[in-house]
Amino acid sequence: MSGIALSRLAQERKAWRKDHPFGFVAVPTKNPDGTMNLMNWECAIPGKKGTPWEGGLFKLRMLFKDDYPSSPPKCKFEPPLFHPNVYPSGTVCLSILEEDKDWRPAITIKQILLGIQELLNEPNIQDPAQAEAYTIYCQNRVEYEKRVRAQAKKFAPS
């Protein structure tokens, strides 16, 4: 494992614990031996107030490669969400998460999670990743928002 990646992720964890947006979660997972795995984080993004996503808490896994922060983490909703920019596998399609697009090593975990929260309610229809959600979003916004509200209710924190 890269010392650069681990040191950056340790800084990220410290900064997150000191200050993070209300309702968001970002925690490194534990290895079988109980030690912390900084390369694999369990996160959760709350649906934004005043949107059909409100009330939901959407679980996301963030996986970092050894060359982080040169390369972005892979962000994957578990379980996958109904959304035009979420692949059926759950992987998020967002330009700041793509090395050859808008990724920059200075982007923080907090910025990534806030960017994904923004994307939930403002899909990028130029870059669809899920045919069904994309089609319904474009053709029947009322039905799309109904499905999103049902999903938010399903993923409401207990």
Rank of each mutant, 00 (worst) to 15 (best):
S2C: 15
S2A: 08
S2R: 04
S2M: 04
G3L: 10
G3A: 00
I4V: 08
I4S: 04
L6S: 07
L6D: 07
L6F: 10
S7C: 10
R8K: 00
L9D: 15
Q11V: 13
R13P: 02
K14N: 07
K14V: 09
A15F: 12
A15Q: 14
W16Y: 06
W16P: 01
W16H: 04
R17I: 01
K18L: 04
D19W: 06
D19L: 04
H20L: 03
H20M: 00
H20R: 08
H20K: 04
F22D: 06
F22K: 01
F22S: 04
F22M: 01
F22W: 04
F22P: 03
F24S: 01
A26N: 04
V27D: 01
V27S: 08
V27H: 12
P28G: 15
P28L: 07
T29Q: 07
T29K: 13
K30F: 07
N31L: 14
N31F: 09
N31K: 11
P32S: 14
P32Q: 14
P32M: 14
P32C: 09
G34S: 06
G34C: 08
T35W: 03
T35D: 02
T35E: 00
L38V: 09
M39P: 06
M39S: 05
M39K: 07
N40C: 05
N40E: 15
E42N: 05
E42A: 13
E42F: 10
E42I: 03
E42V: 13
E42Q: 09
C43G: 11
A44Q: 01
A44C: 04
A44L: 11
I45L: 06
G47H: 07
G47P: 01
G47T: 06
K48V: 04
P52M: 10
P52D: 11
P52I: 11
P52E: 14
P52A: 14
W53M: 04
E54T: 10
E54A: 09
E54Q: 12
G55A: 10
G56W: 01
L57S: 09
L57G: 06
F58V: 09
F58G: 05
K59Q: 11
K59C: 13
L60V: 09
L60K: 05
R61H: 10
R61Y: 09
M62L: 08
L63G: 13
L63M: 13
F64W: 06
D66Y: 08
D66L: 12
D66C: 12
D67K: 07
D67P: 10
Y68L: 02
P69T: 00
P69N: 01
S70F: 09
S71Y: 10
S71T: 10
P72Y: 00
P73M: 15
K74N: 15
K76R: 14
E78L: 10
E78N: 14
E78P: 03
P79T: 13
P79D: 14
P79A: 15
P79C: 13
P79E: 14
P80W: 13
P80E: 11
P80V: 07
L81Y: 02
L81S: 03
L81A: 06
F82A: 04
F82T: 05
F82I: 04
H83W: 03
P84L: 15
P84E: 02
P84D: 07
N85H: 01
N85Y: 00
Y87A: 03
Y87D: 01
Y87M: 08
P88H: 14
S89I: 13
G90C: 07
T91R: 09
T91W: 14
T91L: 14
V92T: 07
V92I: 07
V92M: 01
L94F: 10
S95M: 01
S95A: 04
L97H: 11
E98C: 06
E98W: 10
E99M: 11
E99C: 13
E99G: 14
K101S: 13
K101E: 12
K101G: 09
K101H: 14
D102R: 02
W103Q: 00
W103A: 01
R104Q: 04
A106S: 14
A106Q: 05
I107D: 11
K110M: 06
K110S: 07
K110P: 09
K110N: 09
K110F: 04
Q111K: 15
Q111D: 12
I112G: 06
I112R: 07
I112H: 12
L113W: 04
L113F: 06
L114N: 12
G115S: 01
Q117H: 13
E118W: 08
L119Y: 14
L119G: 02
L120N: 00
N121V: 13
N121W: 09
N121Q: 13
N121S: 12
E122K: 08
E122C: 13
E122M: 12
P123W: 02
N124M: 04
N124H: 09
I125H: 03
I125L: 10
Q126M: 11
D127Y: 12
D127R: 03
D127M: 01
P128W: 05
P128K: 00
P128T: 08
A129N: 00
A131R: 05
E132K: 07
E132A: 10
E132L: 09
Y134T: 05
T135L: 12
T135W: 12
T135N: 08
I136H: 07
I136P: 01
Y137H: 04
Y137L: 07
C138D: 09
C138H: 08
Q139T: 12
Q139A: 10
Q139S: 07
Q139H: 11
Q139V: 03
N140K: 07
R141G: 08
R141A: 10
R141S: 08
R141W: 07
V142Y: 13
V142W: 10
E143K: 10
Y144R: 02
E145Q: 11
E145W: 07
R147E: 10
R147S: 13
R147P: 04
V148S: 03
V148T: 04
R149W: 10
R149G: 06
R149Q: 13
R149N: 09
A150K: 13
Q151S: 03
Q151T: 05
Q151D: 04
A152W: 04
K153N: 14
K154S: 14
F155D: 08
P157R: 08
